[in-house]
Write a protein that binds this DNA or RNA. Structure first.
Lengths: 217, 217
DNA sequence: CGCGCAGGTATTGGCTACAATACTGTAGCC
DNA sequence: GGCTACAGTATTGTAGCCAATACCTGCGCG
């Protein structure tokens, strides 16, 4: 079971790094060799990843990386909008002074990253900000759901980060969230987070428009 | 795998019917006999149920029914509040005439059930209403999450249904949701659903107060 | 030349046996 | 009499094996 967790994480990380393409078949034997473990462990790992919604398994046809359509990505983000809204609200309700300091520091570094055009840096800070908010909110149930949803979104998340001009737009949204949390404004923290993620949904929609104007998928 | 799904459902149903107590150990051998299957299948089922958050498994100590504390039940309901709010909003946005008819019918039957004091009937209609809204909303991602959360809540849900006077309170809330969806008022549908589930959270809190005034758990 | 059928191969599904680990009860010692 | 250590038992974790199923290839027939 110790080995099992490692394999689960290994495959998950590989997927997150984009080493497996969507719809790619995950042959058990291959994974055995790749992670130097037994088929038993691999099968258990695939089961777990199926439950996480990262892979799908068809009867007698094995496991593949689950393809997340754009419409599904939007659905996922819609759910994230409300759940992260809850997290922001709770963070605002119970943030300590130290928490506020951490958040404002992240905000300042974000502004610097945008100013110097360091997109990767900004993307990391974005993840850090959301993670810190979740930590402050201490809402285990919400955290679990957000993490699970996030795991399914990586591919689209990556596409999003490459949309030019997004960082400048999202910066002010992030700063509004931080400000609301800092002054303990529960309602505005939630609203700010919702607005922020709404703009992510808009960006996803735009992505779909430009990629395939006629196809729904 | 066909057998496997059956066992998963079987155990889940048993838990939902309250046949297993929280913290009760689920010995693999026992389940093998009970469902007339092999340990292999049982183990797979336990894994799946672990992913659903219904059981927990400790290394070399086996599986137990996961104990959902009151605070966790409240967390779960908080998440449900925002996600079901999303569902209600979407239902309002895209409900057909037939959908509205179905919903108003459920609403009328709810009122009747309350009038005649048929609590079980009302409880069933409650489930039916929420299920119908999810169906109308057609939001797969949200539905999955709500169902998962619901599965973890059964025990507390049961306790809640026994609180005297709750049906009368929730009836008007349900009717407000139905009315908002019927006239396509997205914002009010979400608000109404949130208010409704907020009152559920209040009831849960009250339950905690009366049960153990000093203990946090 | 194309379509359908059949056999072979690859891959997964399920089972049994074995190993490792934790719990429990008992006996001996302090 | 109580505590500790040891041994036995119960239960889970792991591995390898056989069977079932789907896919692919080749052959035959129309």
């Amino acid at each position: 079971m110790a080995a099992e967790v490692e394999v689960i994480d290994g495959i998950r990380e590989a997927v997150l790094r984009g080493e497996f393409a969507p719809k790619q078949r995950l042959v058990e034997a291959e994974l055995c060799e790749q992670f130097d473990t037994s088929r038993f462990v691999v099968r258990a790992a695939l089961r777990a990843l199926e439950a996480e919604g990262i892979v799908e398994r068809l009867r007698n046809k094995g496991a593949r990386i689950r393809e997340i359509s754009l419409t599904e990505a939007i659905e996922i983000t819609e759910v994230r909008r409300v759940v992260e809204g809850l997290v922001a609200a709770r963070a605002a309700a119970q943030a300590s002074e130290a928490d506020v300091t951490r958040l404002t520091t992240i905000g300042r570094r974000m502004r610097e990253a945008v100013a110097t055009g360091e997109l990767m840096q900004y993307s990391d800070l974005n993840a850090e900000l959301h993670a810190t908010l979740r930590e402050v909110a201490q809402h285990e149930t919400a955290n679990r759901i957000i993490e699970r949803l996030h795991g399914q979104m990586v591919r689209h998340q990556f596409a999003l980060s490459r949309v030019p001009g997004r960082s400048a737009v999202s910066l002010v949204q992030h700063e509004r969230i931080i400000a609301a949390v800092a002054r303990g404004d529960v309602a505005d923290a939630e609203a700010a987070m919702r607005d922020h993620i709404s703009s992510v949904i808009d960006a996803l929609n735009a992505l779909g428009q430009q990629a395939s104007p006629q196809a729904s998928r």
